[in-house]
Design a protein around this nucleic acid. Structure first.
Lengths: 153, 153
DNA sequence: GTGGATATGGATGACCTTGACCGCAAAATC
DNA sequence: GATTTTGCGGTCAAGGTCATCCATATCCAC
């Protein structure tokens, strides 16, 4: 993982459809070399996958909420994790320090849908208490690992 | 945005490097039609960009923290947003309901680096009080909009 | 029936992939 | 210490795949 790899990753983050020749021209390598480096980065797991970044609003998911969860004392924690993994609305679920057990990031079409998720958690006997925080706006959103310096062009 | 569009988006989310012919074979369209739909989805903004999903650990960013922020009464809120946008460690920053003003998602190499970010916020006279929560593990992570049903194959 | 939007099919050119060859640096051998 | 060896990473060229574009056809709504 040297500077060239980082540059290539930055370029791919900005636009994963850039041609190898284009990337090579920018970083100073031949297309084959760029291809080989991308292959290595993917094999090593640094690049997990090629994907698309979507606009939540266009998908009809306007509401972003964070929910703090305290599990019940007798909750099956493994089952809770499996449920969180399977529930499409739950984008992230983190085991956190502090007074709560988990912090979940949830995206739904309307605030009412949050109730459904919470009801599910309650019905499955996971939920002790919870606290819901609604995101009114998001000045910064979308960076998954880190915002790079490279911009498409 | 019909079912075909959603299927195509699911497939692209799982693997954005699938060929148009491959996608077309799966959803029942010709490569040209798939291409046209992707073009339209991108033009409409539903697909923001083609990108790569990275492994934070491989990038040397092992620590994920959430920081609650209450701005100072006299803080320049627009300036705060600009700063949050520019700071690479700040992946997300949401204006939220409840007792705090903002919730920030931050990724750093080591816990000590969080102090640097907070010191910056304090130095720029943004910060009133803050509370930092560290993510110990993340049973669910990486979904940006919603976990689709489609899997690569 | 007409107009608009969407799908199809083929031609074309760009692109990725692969293999063989080269250069360099580090390690091993003499 | 000089030389050989070995392995990694790069370049180049060729072949096949793929995306793209355009003309045509089809479907749906009015």
């Amino acid at each position: 993982m040297d500077d060239l790899d980082r540059k290539i990753i930055d370029l791919l983050s900005a636009d994963a459809r850039r041609s190898l020749a284009d990337i090579g021209g920018t970083v100073g390598l031949s297309p084959s070399s760029v291809n080989e480096r991308i292959r290595r980065l993917t094999a090593a797991g640094a690049i997990r996958r090629f994907t698309v970044e979507l606009d939540p609003a266009a998908m009809g998911l306007d509401t972003l909420v964070f929910v703090w969860i305290a599990l019940r004392e007798d909750a099956d924690e493994a089952a809770f994790r499996r449920y969180a993994e399977a529930e499409p609305a739950i984008l992230e679920c983190h085991h956190v320090t502090g007074g709560w057990s988990y912090l979940m990031k949830i995206r739904v079409g309307e605030t009412a849908s949050i109730e459904g998720v919470l009801a599910n958690l309650k019905g499955r006997k996971f939920l002790g208490r919870s606290e819901t925080v609604i995101a009114l706006s998001s000045p910064v959103a979308g960076a998954y690992v880190q915002k790079g310096e490279a911009e498409g062009g």
